[in-house]
Every structure is written in C-alpha cells, then in structure tokens.
Design a protein around this nucleic acid. Structure first.
Lengths: 226, 226
DNA sequence: ATATGAATGTGATTAAAGTCACAAAAATAT
DNA sequence: ATATTTTTGTGACTTTAATCACATTCATAT
C-alpha cells in the first residue's frame, strides 16, 4: 500500500483529493517495479486497473491490420496508462510496456471511478489531462503524414532530447531500431538509413542507442520542413 | 436562447444536469445554422466557446507542416467541437467547418467549466466522451499507416455507409475529391485512382459524389486486409 | 573463449503513391 | 446562353520508402 499523499510525482488530479479520498486511493493502489520490456497493460485483455507511471519510461503500442505493432507514444512519469480504455471500454485497446526500469502504480478502476464521481475537481483535472493528451495525438497524426522519414526521425530525436532528457544534447534512446521504426511509422531499414542521412549532414552523431545532437538548429529545420 | 432541456439530441453529459444547471447552460448557449463550407471554429484563433453539433455534418481539420490541411475526422450530430482546445489551451488547435447544412450550439467556455466543477456526473460523461474519442483516433492512427490507399478509401466508404447513413448502401459523400484525399491521407489523384480500382473490381459504383456499395463483403475485406 | 541467436547495416530491387501537365466535365457567374 | 472558374480524370514520370537477401556486429549463454 502506498502513501499517495506524499507521492513524489503526484498528479494534478490527485492533488485535488481530500484526506478521505486520498485514503480511498491509498487503499486501492499497488506499486510495482518493472524491468525494461515488462508489460504494464495488454491489448485485448479485460481491463481492471489504471496504471500511473511514477518513474521510468514506457511505450504505448497498438496492433495494426498487418499484425505489426505501432508505437502510439512514449510516455514519461506522471502519465496514466489505460485510462481511456478502462473508462469507456471493457477490453484494453492498446498495450503498454516499460522501456526502462519503471515504477508503476496500479489503481483499481472502481476506486478511480468513485473518485471521479465524488470529486468534480479530480474529474476536471482528468478532463484537462485527456484534452492535452488528445491534442498531442492530433499533432502527431498530421506530422507523421506530412513529414518524410528524416523529418519524423528528427522529431523523435528532438523529443528524446527536449522532453525526456531535459534538453541534454547527448542521451540514450532506449529503443531498438525496430521500435524506433514502429514509433516513426517506418521500417527498421529506413530508420537505419535516415540515421545515416542525419549523421552525414552533420546534425547528429550516433553510436548504437547513444545519440548526440551536433547541430540543433539544422535538426530543428529538418523536423519543421518535414 | 435555447431550451436545452428539450434538445432533440441532448448529450449524455447534459442529461445529468439538474434544472439550475440546465438554466446556466440555457443562458449561455446560442444556436446557429450553418451552410456547407461555413466555419465553426478556426485553428489559431482565441477560443471562447465550445460548439455542439446538433444536426448536419462537419469536418475537423488541422494544418500540417506543408500548409496542407489534413482532415482528422468527420463528426456527426452529438459531437462537441473545440472541447480539447478550449479546456487546455488558449488557441484553437484545429479548425472545423460544416460540410452539410448544420445546426450548432455555441456554449460559453466559462459556463461549460462551471458545469464541470459543479456536477461531477457531467464531468464524468465528458471524460467518457473524451476517452471514446481518443480511442477512435488511436484506431485511425494505426489504420492510416498500415493500410494502403484502397484500404483507406474502403474505410471511408464504410464509414459513410455504416456511421453516417444508417448502413444504407447508396449515399452521397459530401466531400470533394480533395477533401476525401485529406481524410484518407493521400492526394486527389490517388483518390481518383483508388475509386476507379474499387469500381473496376465491382465493390462499388460511383457517380460524382454519389456512392453505392455493390459488394459489401469484398469492400470489408479490402478494408480489413489493408 | 566459443557458440548461438538477436539486432543492425547495406545494397539491389520493387512497389506504392506523389508530382506534373493537361484535358474534360461540372459548377458558378455574367 | 456563354464565359469563367473550379473540380475531376488521366497518362507519363519521379520519388520515397518498402521489401528482400545477406553480411556484420553485438549480446548472451555455455
């Protein structure tokens, strides 16, 4: 059992809870530590819990018609996993798994629903969360379609630098080339070639999973013009 | 001023409102009739209202890097427009316009927020709405990337038949070829050719904007296998 | 250290869809 | 009814990225 009141990365929603409500959360919340590759939620299975990523990094995947998994998003601490599914659907509509050692809190779906109906501020924060999340997907949707591979890969690299590594210019991308491909909607081979492209024109330096941004402005330009 | 209490297509959220709350809604809600092509909300402008589509049909568009508009979704009556933006962002992140004569209710954003914080059931229904909406985009996201044009066009045709025209086999798609292209993420020319393909193998019969599904099963198969 | 299997890089080839240019048809205005 | 503009269809060609086949590197287990 967790002490959600003093959670290091309390969500805005949880901050609205009063002591009684916090108690409901505490009683129905289980913290788990996951290794890279371990599954958080599984597409197609009955959903019973919402997951909250406390630390680490995870991916959200969805099966496509060809059976190939597509990565919808890389999620960082402070994100809810399985919320959309649990609340409006019986079965998980996407999978999620850790891509780095992660700590996840599983919250019982009924307790979660209880908190929503009890506390309008809590609900309100979830609404804001969902809205922002959806707008993010809108952006991703148009970007992925209008940019070609180099631009999409530039996006990925900028994302890992700006969003995941506090704008560090040198960082590790904890994804295989296959996963990178699933993330930028391409094939493994195309990703390899795009990495080579970006390296050759001097925007990045790459060694395995280790990326270094050499020319940020150029990378940004490639990302923007597609 | 509208009588939202007796709205012909009251949303589930509005159904949770008590008389006082309904009154807030009534007082802050304006009904407008729009002609095809008329704008409902505009990307980049300050958002002050949420729109609720009471009748007709609208499209949701978003500008991409190439300046080309992409159609995120075709929305039918009972949908909220601009909700994600208004609640979490100052500026509209997407545009919406009528593609058929439509009736839209504009609800003042502050009244809307007031209802959310007053009535947890109202908030709860909005959460469910947002979740379903987002899951729809997840589907769209993977489909659009894994299917090729014929499959995506089949999807579009099935959508207009099943979702918009109560499974009628013969119907009008109120979109130009250009809009169809923006919807299925392709070019006008490719759409023309895909329509020709599907016609030649006998799945559909097309005359201008008028579509007829001749072989539903085959069309479904093309949609499924991509 | 060696063997095994997975992940990655690379070149050749193919396929899908975009681009361009123009003709035909349809819609709209005069 | 005619002119003008917009939309749509079509063929030739190009571009992008996928596919395939294989080599290489890397990680892990024995």
């Amino acid at each position: 059992m967790q002490d959600c009141e003093f959670c290091a990365i309390k969500s805005k929603a949880v901050e609205t809870l009063n002591p009684d409500e916090l108690d409901i959360l505490k009683q129905n919340c289980a913290e788990v530590t996951l290794q890279p590759g371990e599954s958080i939620i599984k597409e197609g299975l009955l959903s019973s819990h919402i997951a909250y990523l406390k630390s680490g990094l995870a991916k959200i995947c969805k099966k496509g018609v060809k059976g190939v998994d597509q990565i919808l998003k890389i999620v960082k601490p402070g994100s809810y996993l399985g919320m959309q599914t649990v609340l409006s659907n019986k079965l998980h509509q996407y999978s999620s798994s850790a891509i780095e050692e992660s700590v996840v809190c599983y919250i019982d779906i009924w307790s979660f629903k209880e908190l929503i109906t009890r506390n309008a501020q809590f609900a309100n924060e979830l609404i804001l969360y969902l809205c922002r999340d959806e707008l993010g997907y809108f952006n991703r949707f148009v970007n992925v379609h209008q940019k070609q591979i180099d631009g999409r890969l530039a996006d990925m690299i900028l994302f890992f630098s700006d969003e995941i590594n506090e704008s560090e210019k040198s960082f590790r991308v904890p994804l295989s080339r296959n996963d990178m491909a699933a993330l930028v909607c391409a094939t493994r081979e195309s990703v390899t070639r795009a990495i080579k492209d970006l390296s050759e024109i001097g925007t990045i330096r790459v060694n395995g999973k280790h990326f270094e941004i050499v020319n940020y402005d150029l990378l940004k330009k490639i990302s923007e013009k597609g």
